[in-house]
């Protein structure tokens, strides 16, 4: 987080330094808002409100517009996210081959609903329209790995690979 909640003082955490670098890199470029937001999310794992305010000031873009862009794109998140992001493909091929059952089973195992994050911040479970691996349907993506030809029974083994 940018700043320490207990004292209200600004603390230069490694994340804040990365943020300064990022803003320095993009300052003055046209159309930099989305890459900056992507960078912020890379640094903090999500988009903390106070960082968005800073982005708005630094890029001289009204906060309302920043917020508008953040809420428009599915990729941006205003709440903390799990270390591992599971994206369940609900594309046509996956749909036809029964990925809904895989989704239900994952919800059961993790005890979260679509969009939820486990309490230990290990996993966030979401759905995605299509990850473009239809030839391997039904499939899910965990972080950048695609897991295909899934069966409901094999899911726990796959999850175990992610700490």
């Amino acid at each position: 987080m940018a700043g320490c909640a207990c004292t209200g003082e600004k603390v230069d955490s490694p994340q804040d330094l990365q943020l300064m670098d990022l803003l320095g890199h993009y300052r003055g470029y046209d159309g930099s808002l989305i890459p900056v937001l992507q960078g912020v999310q890379e640094i903090y794992g999500y988009l903390p409100a106070e960082v968005l305010e800073k982005v708005s000031q630094e890029l001289k873009i009204p906060f309302s517009k920043v917020f508008g862009v953040v809420t428009f794109y599915a990729q941006f998140h205003l709440k903390p996210r799990g270390r591992n992001i599971i994206r369940v493909c609900l594309g046509t091929a996956c749909h036809v081959l029964g990925n809904a059952k895989v989704f239900d089973r994952l919800k059961d195992i993790l005890g979260v609903d679509n969009g939820g994050t486990t309490d230990d911040l290990r996993f966030t479970l979401e759905s995605v329209a299509c990850i473009g691996a239809c030839g391997l349907a039904p499939c899910i993506m965990i972080n950048d790995d695609t897991h295909g030809r899934l069966t409901v029974d094999g899911l726990e083994d796959i999850l175990a690979q992610y700490a």
Binding site: D30, G31, I34, V69, F72, A129
Partner: peptide
């Protein structure tokens, strides 16, 4: 950044512009 409509050419241009 995850919006299907950005495949539409003018939406895509708006997205590049931030």
């Amino acid at each position: 950044a995850g919006a299907f409509v950005c495949g539409e050419e003018t939406a895509l241009l708006n997205s590049i512009e931030g």
